[in-house]
Design a protein around this nucleic acid. Structure first.
Length: 312
DNA sequence: TCATCATGCCGAT
DNA sequence: TCGGCCTGATGAT
């Protein structure tokens, strides 16, 4: 279940194992049969993420746009090259390794296990597989997506253009800073609550409910503050913090948002989800800083968590 | 074994 | 504002 970091990891994983390969594209479930037929037999030439959206570019000017929504997922079979996540010894060896049903995203390294010698490839699809991308060695199964459609490059570019800046999309520091100013302008020109603006993908891309709550706490900012009342330097700080958190999430695959933990605390937090966050999903529990009970309410149909004392 | 909820978003109403 | 998506983790039974 993805925020921006997960989708970037998926883009990198598919980039490693499927880009440059001519793919069999099918829809075992049947709901994407027509789209799969258009892509079948083509080479995958690029895999990139913008915010929470994945764009897979095939030869012949066709782009597969995927959005996982709340519970979409990719399961990979066969050869799955470990990403350098710096967490799991199994995954840090760097050598290609055969795994069974690797869930790409948060904590996938924990699910990785060597395949049995009798495993057949490709395996039979499990569940409602909307799309299967198949190379000689790797199968990628997409299940439960909100969006899955074939676009021409112009339509794909238009979809990406509807999104606000994604800090992981910039290599150039100057362009990154300019994108930050765009976010500052967007937030400070609106009267909408900043907690809602951070979830608006047209303002800034890739932030979900976990990162929203944690970014606001880390900024000690009251979530209901209208965007136009938030000082520009505070918005700039949130953008810079998002840049750091996203890079960390992409690297580790885990949303660990507490910068105060020592090595032992981090190790504990990687196992215990409740220790990873300042406020997210901690309603009624004492704030890690001041001890006040963490508050929860609905904001724009999602649960918003915050500390009423630390965040003013 | 079952019921509920979840890191998201869209389209119908 | 609500239901759909139709999965998977979690906690109650």
């Amino acid at each position: 279940m993805p925020e921006g970091h997960t989708v970037h990891r998926i883009a990198r994983q598919l980039g490693r194992d499927l880009v440059g390969h001519r793919l069999r594209v099918t829809s075992p479930q049947g709901r994407f049969a027509a789209g799969a037929e258009r892509l079948d037999g083509r080479m995958l030439v690029a895999s990139r993420a913008v915010g929470k959206q994945l764009f897979l570019e095939f030869e012949g000017e066709l782009v597969l746009r995927v959005h996982l929504g709340l519970y979409g997922a990719w399961d990979l079979h066969g050869r799955v090259t470990p990403l350098d996540d710096g967490l799991a010894p199994l995954a840090s060896l760097g050598a290609p390794r055969v795994r069974r049903a690797v869930r790409v995203g948060e904590g996938e390294s924990e699910l990785a296990e060597p395949a049995g010698v009798d495993e057949t490839f490709p395996p039979a699809p499990v569940g409602q597989v909307r799309v299967r991308l198949l190379s000689e060695e790797t199968a990628a199964d997409l299940r439960g997506p909100t969006a899955c459609e074939v676009l021409d490059p112009g339509a794909a570019a238009a979809a990406a253009a509807r999104l606000g800046p994604d800090p992981a999309a910039f290599d150039d520091p100057v362009a990154l800073a300019a994108a930050g100013e765009q976010v500052v302008d967007a937030v400070t020109s609106r009267s909408t609550a900043v907690g809602a603006l951070l979830m608006d993908q047209s303002v800034v891309a890739g932030i979900g409910n976990v990162y929203r709550a944690e970014l606001l706490f880390r900024a000690r900012l009251e979530p209901h503050t209208p965007g136009r009342r938030v000082p520009r330097e505070v918005v700039r700080g949130i953008w810079e913090d998002w840049t750091v958190l996203l890079a960390d999430g992409i690297r580790t695959g885990v949303m660990l948002t507490r910068e105060d933990l020592d090595d032992a605390g981090r190790a504990c937090a990687l196992v215990d989800r409740d220790a990873r966050h300042w406020v997210y999903r901690r309603a009624g529990l004492p704030c890690h800083v001041c001890g006040t009970a963490v508050q929860v309410e609905d904001m724009a149909t999602r649960k918003l968590y915050w500390c009423p004392v630390c965040q003013v």
